[in-house]
Amino acid sequence: MAGDEFRLRLCCGKRGRLRFLSHLEYSHAFERGARRAAIPYSVTKGFSPHMKAAFGPALPVGTQGLREYIDVWLTRYVAAETVLAALGQALPGDLAPTEAGYAAAKEPSLGAACTIGVYEVRVEGGDVAQDIVSRALDDVVGAGVWQVEHKGKTKVFDLAESLPKEMDVRSTGEAEVVVGVTTRMGQGGSLRPDSLVSHALSRAGVAGAVTLVTRLDTLIETEEGTFRRPI
């Protein structure tokens, strides 16, 4: 990396109806916003020069993200608050960044560093109640491993490894609960918390469906095993 570049880390979002964007659409929307904001972004060298930006782990279409991280390289130092304000004017509210801070040039990429996802999965439907859903989830976790077929491939998740924290279930209304799920994204792919919850419901014969999935936080796991925010 050239020494004259400044790596600014932004905490953005993919909120509300924009949760239906794909990762590619989300990244294009950010880049277009950054150009509208006229921040002094760096441009890659090579045959097709483009904005130098890197994104944290992708969210599936339909999953909301409240703290999604993006690194963008600038050609000169601009106060983080100034960039934040400019982007706030140039991006739809559902994508706009809420925090910004410079990151060291040698820090690992967001994609490699952010291995922890903290999710909330909203479940609604006839049989749904806190104790019933908790029991259904406990049964699945008790099984130890979970095998998923996705697009013709089989993924096997070791749940003790993939779920670094215990899931919690909160009642939020009549026949409605919210399941808190913390996942560790690894080499073998990322566990989709909504799929896990749906699997638990159908395995236990519970009538109910996932209606909203939100990633509350995207975190870095330190060598000591603690979790921290990227900024």
């Binding site: 109806r17 924009l18 239906f20 964007l21 794909s22 659409e25 929307a29 277009r32 916003g33 509208r36 279409v61 339909g62 739809p92 559902d94």
Partner: peptide
């Protein structure tokens, strides 16, 4: 409309709220 979007291809077609 929103509840229909979870199961269709490319829901970004129907979102509106694009810039401008």
């Amino acid at each position: 409309v929103e509840p229909l979007l979870g199961t269709v291809e490319r829901p970004a077609r129907y979102l509106n709220s694009e810039w401008n």
